[in-house]
């Protein structure tokens, strides 16, 4: 089966500052694909590049066989990719209900209502907070809201940028469990950038190790976890 996402020889960055060098990757449908690497190695930039938020100098990105290289983010969103940034991924000044309504902005109103009640079934904690401003939610609840907002558009591929950053370990585990459920129950392909490499590699199918903007490893997630050198060198994993 052809991969759902194909990144080929991509050089990308911000303005004149190149961050990624000749990055290639293939993501199979319904996989959890994990991107790991030391700080500042370009993990987030790679996600942003897929979503059209950086400048691509060279290479190509195809999603579902369709060329999306250089398309603006709102067009890429329409093809079925959702991007969840690390911070500012909800409207803090808007209520939970308003946030969900905005996530359904482009849908016709009856469909919007249907989708909103669907995600509320999935995340009942949001149901109790509909009238509260998003800024009053805890960090974990905010991630859930951000997830719910992306789900409203029924994406085929979700890009998570460190969804557990700044969360307590127990909450972080819950969020990662939710992400696994998205794949298992809804069949959504996941690309995950995660600071906790061990945890991420345990739940992942495939993995990519980025160091200094270059691919150091591409293959099975479990294999990377058990790799004799790479884990200890770059990810702080014990041998």
């Amino acid at each position: 089966m052809a991969p759902i996402l194909e990144v080929k020889g991509v050089d990308a960055g911000y303005g004149k500052l190149q961050i990624l060098f000749n990055v290639s990757m293939e993501v199979e449908s319904k996989d959890i694909f994990v991107i790991v690497g030391p700080n500042g190695s370009g993990k987030s930039t790679l996600l942003k590049t897929i979503f059209g938020l950086t400048r691509i100098y060279k290479g190509s990105i195809r999603f579902n066989g369709e060329e999306i290289t250089g398309k603006p983010p709102h067009d890429i969103a329409k093809t079925g990719i959702a991007y969840l940034p690390q911070t500012d991924n909800v409207f803090a000044q808007l209520t939970v209900a308003e946030n969900l309504k905005m996530a359904a902005y482009t849908l016709p109103s009856d469909l919007a209502e249907e989708r909103i009640s669907e995600v509320l079934e999935r995340f009942p904690l949001l149901k109790a907070r509909l009238k509260d401003k998003a800024m009053t939610l805890s960090g974990g609840q905010r991630q859930i809201l951000a997830m719910a907002m992306s789900l409203i558009r029924k994406p085929k591929l979700m890009l998570f940028d460190e969804p557990t950053a700044a969360l307590a370990p127990k909450l972080a585990a819950e969020i990662l469990d939710e992400i696994i459920k998205l794949r298992d129950e809804l069949g959504i392909t996941i690309i995950l950038v995660e600071q906790n490499a061990k945890k991420a590699l345990q739940m992942g199918d495939k993995a990519l190790l980025l160091v200094g903007g270059r691919v150091m490893y591409r293959g099975g997630a479990k294999e990377l976890l058990e790799h004799p050198e790479l884990g200890a060198l770059y990810l702080g994993l014990k041998k």
Binding site: F51, P73, H74, A77, K78, Y83, P85, D88, N89, V90, F91, A92, Q93, L94, E98, K101, M102, A103, Y105, T106, M149
Partner: peptide
């Protein structure tokens, strides 16, 4: 109104609003 809410959303976080199709 939906447009009014979108206005507040776009003012608070234009990037996010843009990705939602506002």
């Amino acid at each position: 109104t939906k447009f009014g809410t979108a206005m507040r959303a776009a003012i608070e976080n234009p990037q996010l609003a843009e990705t939602l199709g506002i």
